[in-house]
């Protein structure tokens, strides 16, 4: 009986793992960027002057000096940033998998897809809010639209989910190295060392 070490598999699985790790890292970066951009923009032009209200994941901002207390306290960015950090950690673990002990493989796979899903759940919830806010009928005085942050976060979710799926050890690709052959070693001699015996009867010497 012999135990063999776990290998990372053939080349297609290795490429998929690297692409998955890069996608997870890209998802984390996009989520971090999206968390700082406006997810909703509303432009008011009642008096000729334009006033812009923007909603980020950290509250409301206004181009004019007004205090917005009632809705400014919701910090939707907290779960998004935590998910981005988890994605970054997952990306490092996925890319460093060949140099890590085999026991890290399972937690890495769970962390990869789990952190992408947490990000998706958070962004989807914010998206429900932005969907309602930006679908108000525009008038000549009020224009509402989703901000660049929302689009960035949606792309981050798609990229992160793709990375999470690619980072899994799907069956069909060999994940275990072939064992080194052991036992009795048998050498086959070169043909020129064999006696000339074309009929195979051993009577060639007469």
């Amino acid at each position: 009986m012999e135990r063999a070490s776990v290998d990372e598999g053939p080349r297609p699985g290795r490429v998929r793992r690297v692409v998955g790790g890069i996608a997870l890292g890209a998802g984390a970066a996009l989520a971090a960027v999206g968390a700082t951009l406006p997810v909703f923009v509303q432009v008011l032009s009642f008096t000729g002057d334009q006033e812009t209200f923007t909603m980020t994941l950290w509250g409301f901002e206004s181009s004019v000096d007004v205090q917005i207390d009632d809705v400014g306290g919701v910090r939707y960015g907290v779960p998004v940033v935590v998910a981005a950090v988890l994605l970054a950690v997952s990306a490092v673990l996925v890319l460093a998998a060949p140099r890590l002990p085999a026991r890290f493989a399972g937690p890495t796979s769970v962390a990869a897809i789990g952190s992408a899903a947490v990000l998706t759940g958070s962004v989807w919830t914010v998206g429900q809010l932005v969907l309602v806010a930006s679908s108000r009928e525009d008038t000549t005085a009020v224009t509402s639209s989703a901000g660049s942050g929302m689009a960035t976060l949606v792309v981050a979710c798609v990229v992160a989910l793709a990375g999470g799926v690619l980072a899994q050890h799907w069956p069909g690709q060999a994940s275990v190295a072939r064992p080194e052959p052991t036992g009795v070693v048998v050498y086959r001699l070169p043909d020129e060392d064999l006696p000339e015996d074309p009929e195979g009867t051993g009577g060639g010497g007469s």
Partner: peptide, 30 residues
């Protein structure tokens, strides 16, 4: 492959729930 997809899907479902509930929780907290 389907069995693995089910296990991966369960993590995705739980993660989705955590993310959504956490965001709703931020709203409730405020």
């Amino acid at each position: 492959r389907v069995a693995l997809a089910a296990r991966v899907g369960s993590v995705a479902a739980a993660g989705l729930l955590v993310g959504a509930v956490w965001s709703v929780g931020q709203n409730v907290l405020a």
